[in-house]
């Protein structure tokens, strides 16, 4: 399977519907959306690397539990580091940070490799990239149209934020609400499916 298919046809958010809970909840700002996506990829990568290094010491029967433990370990490390160095982001992500353990397991580890298989880093990376791009796009769309700004990152001393709308233009605040997230997601999903179907039809016509 090539990169395009992994990113588009198997898009975890808009096609697979994986990790929807945080995807709907944290995408009212661009910075929380892309950081959550990057954390999933980072934790998945570190988790797989740790497991790959340690697997020879553990019996195959307990591999799954070791995987869970390793992912939970990296999630906790990230949570502690975020609280210390990016407290604004830590507060904004809230309960969705511990939930990363579940998302990462579903999105990357368990899905990609049955126990005993070697790590497929490229596949993971593409899936993760699909997740980051989807969340980033979703977050940017909602923040720009919903509040007229684009927040790149919130640091303790400084927030890098751009005013996108001109003065006098009212943003569509509804998009920032949970219902707005769900409706936006519905349109995006329909769009993804429609484009996929159209591409399939045009290939069949050739």
């Amino acid at each position: 399977m090539n990169g395009h298919e992994k990113l588009w046809k198997e898009n975890p958010v808009f096609i697979g519907g994986i990790g929807l809970c945080p995807a709907l909840a944290v995408t009212n700002r661009f910075d929380t959306a892309w950081i959550l996506g990057v954390l999933v990829v980072l934790i998945g990568f570190l988790g797989n690397l740790t497991f790959w290094l340690l697997r020879r010491y553990f019996h195959a029967q307990i591999e799954f539990y070791i995987r869970i433990l390793i992912i939970a370990f990296w999630v906790t490390i990230m949570e502690i580091l975020l609280e210390a160095f990016l407290p604004d982001i830590w507060e904004a992500l809230g309960i969705y940070l511990p939930l990363l353990a579940v998302n990462t397991m579903i999105l990357l580890s368990v899905k990609s490799y049955p126990a005993g298989e070697d790590a497929k880093f490229t596949e993971d990376l593409l899936l993760g990239l699909g997740y980051v791009l989807s969340l980033g796009f979703f977050g940017a769309f909602r923040e720009i149209l919903g509040s007229g700004t684009l927040t790149l990152i919130s640091l303790p001393q400084n927030t890098v934020q751009y005013q996108v709308f001109l003065k006098g233009i009212q943003p569509i605040r509804f998009l920032l609400l949970p219902a707005g997230a769900l409706i936006t997601y519905g349109y995006f999903r329909a769009g993804f499916l429609w484009i996929g179907k159209r591409a399939e039809n045009s290939r069949a016509g050739e």
């Binding site: 700002r29 407290p87 920032l176």
Partner: peptide, 12 residues
């Protein structure tokens, strides 16, 4: 108000 928790438009 802990600004970080709210979308920018509300913060504003």
């Amino acid at each position: 108000i802990e600004k970080s928790l709210s979308p920018p438009v509300l913060t504003a």
